[in-house]
Each structure stands twice: as structure tokens, then as C-alpha cells.
């Protein structure tokens, strides 16, 4: 889609800066997302007037008020539905859905899976802090089982959703995962999401300093992150670890972590990441990987090609307009069975 392309380098972060007070808590991971997106937008080559942010309700969803773009802060869970209308009505716009785990995984779960199924070309940035922040600390659909929260004083008894699993289950064409504490990883990934044709889901593992502080610490902590994350690069073998000596391979169709140099394992035994593979089974396995058995997959897990809803829709419109004999409403009103009655 054209999205009103311009030369990159004509815009800067300043073009998206809004003179307003950002009201997220100090230390909230959302600040990093805002900053990263303001840095990334000038590099997408989209005219600043063509950028639209749509959000739902929750801490994440205040985002549109903090960036100089067209913005729509909508209803709880409905950002994807509103964005579907925005993008279908005008495919030239660059549309961003800013949402959270409560907004997209709970009340908006239906819209989330259906925008993905249709593969509407929007970028969904999912702030996953695994808690309801704006209502002050209730468990969400991504809260780890057993967590003590205000509504689970004895620990949650629900199995959490993995946003990546839902994305794959809805036939998603793009899924990536990043952490709020690594702005470079986030920016690179968000630019890839922006370039993808179809619905891009970027899950940001985001820290809520007030209600779920350090919920991702076992993944993002400085001392553990190299061993507990694997950053996926398309076309490269799946290697991770402080010593860069661990990898992932298939053993009898099951993934396992191996150490290079042990038991005769070499780089060649490892899975080479193919984000574009139309078959999503490996991508599905990758998003399900978790501690302690596996590192958590980061970066672009899946970026596959498929048809894009609004493009097909507008192709059908153009085709119909080309073929029709009924060019105007007046033509339509007079088509088919009409009867002339003459007064006697």
C-alpha cells in the first residue's frame, strides 16, 4: 500500500512531538514505547499526516494523546475494530493500534483475532504488563497462574494466554516480541512491523512499576537476559546464551535446547529461523517457548505473506466500478423492474 510514501530522512522525532504532559508513572515501560515510536516513525517513510493511532482503554491506550498524529482514544477492547474501519475506509493511512493485555486479550479478544484473521494492514503494539494497571492491580488474561493480585488474593487459578499463540491461532502473518528495556531491539522490530503487509502484532513485555513490578525480570534482568532470551534473526541459526553456545534444534519433531560442542552438536544441527515460512508450526512452537526449559523468543517470530483484506476489498470496488453500467444512483433507481403509470 502506498501510505502516502515520502523520502525517509525528511522528518525527525520532533515532527511527532506533542506539547503535553505525559501522565504515565515514572519508570513505566510505556515511556520507552512512546520514545521508540517517535524515533521510528520518521524512518517509515510515511507522511506525518497519514499516521493514525487508535487505542482502546487502559494505561497503554493513553498513547494517542502523547504523540502529534491523528489519534483516536476509543472504547475498551475496540481499538482493533475501529482501526479495521479506518484502514478499510482509507488504505493510504498508516494505522497503529495501541493496546494492552486487558484491552486486547480480554474484553477485545474477539476483535483482536478477527483483525488478524482478515490480515488488515495495521500495526498492533501490545503493551503486555500482565496486570490491569489503570484499575489498580487486578489480574489479566496474561497474568502468570498463581499470581497474587487484588482479585486473586489466593493466587490466580486461570491459565494465561500467550498473545503469540492467539496470533498464530488466528492465522496471523506477523508476530514479534520485544522488551521495554531494549530500545534498539524495539525500534528495529517496530520498523519491520511497519513494513509488513498485513496485521503486525508486536508484543512488548512491559514493566508496571506499581502493580506488577519486575513481572518480566526473570526474562529481562541484566544478569539473566542473555540466557533467558533468544533474539531471532531471519536466515540465521537459533543461537543464544552469554557464551553464544546454546541453540535450539528439532529432535524427533520436538524442540530442545542444546549446547554447541557438547555431544557432537554443531551450529549445523540448529534450526535456521525462517520468519517467512508460510507453515507456522515452528513459529507456533517458538512463541510457546518459556522458562525454565526454554529461552523466551524475541524479535520477529513470523513475517509471512498473505492477502491483505483492504487491498482485496478495493480491488473488488475498482473492478465493479469498471464493469458496471450503473454509474450513478439515478441509474440504480431506474434499473430492474420499473413501471410507468400514466394518469388518465
Amino acid at each position: 500500500m502506498a501510505e502516502g510514501k515520502i523520502e525517509t530522512g525528511t522528518l525527525t522525532r520532533q515532527d511527532f512531538k506533542l506539547d503535553t504532559t505525559v501522565k504515565w508513572c515514572a519508570g513505566c515501560g510505556a515511556h520507552a514505547v512512546l520514545s521508540t515510536i517517535m524515533n521510528a516513525l520518521p524512518e517509515t517513510g510515511v507522511k506525518k499526516e497519514n499516521v493514525v493511532f487508535v487505542s482502546g482503554i487502559g494505561c497503554s491506550s493513553r498513547f494517542p494523546y502523547y504523540i502529534n498524529a491523528y489519534g483516536f482514544h476509543s472504547l475498551h477492547g475496540r481499538a482493533s475494530a475501529i482501526a479495521s474501519g479506518v484502514k478499510t475506509a482509507n488504505p493510504n493511512l498508516s494505522v497503529w493500534v495501541m493496546t494492552g493485555d486487558g484491552d486486547s486479550m480480554a474484553i477485545g479478544g474477539n476483535h483482536f483475532i478477527h483483525i488478524i484473521r482478515r490480515n488488515i494492514n495495521v500495526n498492533i503494539i501490545l503493551f503486555n504488563n500482565k496486570i490491569y494497571g489503570l484499575t489498580k492491580g487486578q489480574y489479566s488474561p496474561t497474568t502468570p497462574k498463581g499470581s497474587i493480585t487484588k482479585t486473586s488474593p489466593d493466587g490466580t487459578i486461570e491459565n494465561p494466554f500467550q498473545p503469540g499463540e492467539l496470533t498464530m491461532g488466528a492465522q496471523g502473518t506477523f508476530f514479534a516480541r520485544v522488551v521495554d528495556s531494549d530500545p534498539k531491539m524495539m525500534k528495529d522490530t517496530i520498523l519491520k512491523a511497519a513494513a509488513h503487509r498485513g496485521t503486525s502484532v508486536v508484543e512488548v513485555l512491559l514493566n508496571c512499576v506499581i502493580f506488577a513490578n519486575d513481572v518480566h525480570k526473570s526474562i529481562t534482568g541484566k544478569d539473566v537476559r542473555d540466557d533467558h532470551q533468544i533474539f531471532l534473526r531471519h536466515g540465521e541459526p537459533m543461537i543464544f546464551g552469554k557464551e553464544r553456545n546454546k541453540g535450539i534444534r528439532y529432535n524427533c519433531n520436538k524442540m530442545e535446547v542444546v549446547t554447541i560442542g557438547e555431544n557432537g552438536i554443531t551450529e549445523k544441527d540448529l534450526i535456521v529461523h525462517d520468519a517467512t515460512d508460510p507453515d507456522d508450526s515452528t513459529h507456533y512452537n517458538l512463541v510457546r517457548m518459556g522458562l525454565p526449559e526454554f529461552p523466551v523468543a524475541m524479535g520477529v517470530v513470523r513475517a509471512a505473506e498473505s492477502t491483505v483484506f483492504e487491498s482485496l476489498m478495493h480491488d473488488q470496488v475498482q473492478e465493479a466500478q469498471k464493469k458496471t453500467k450503473l454509474k450513478t444512483v439515478d441509474d440504480l433507481l431506474r434499473s430492474g423492474n420499473t413501471f410507468r403509470i400514466d394518469d388518465e
Partner: peptide, 30 residues
């Protein structure tokens, strides 16, 4: 469609109206 009209069959009633509100925001008769 030959008159330029787009019908979006949504996943539910809520998405029906929300998609229309999105379209209204971007200048369509929604």
C-alpha cells in the same frame, strides 16, 4: 461496490458500529 460503497461484515455488532466510527473518523459516510 460499483457505486464505491464498502460493506464491512464485522465479527459482531460492536465491531460493526466501531468499524463505522473508524470510517467516520477518516471521512466516510458511516
Amino acid at each position: 461496490k460499483h457505486l464505491g460503497a464498502v460493506a464491512f461484515q464485522a465479527e459482531d455488532e460492536i465491531a460493526g458500529i466501531c468499524s463505522a466510527i473508524g470510517a467516520s473518523f477518516v471521512g466516510r459516510l458511516a
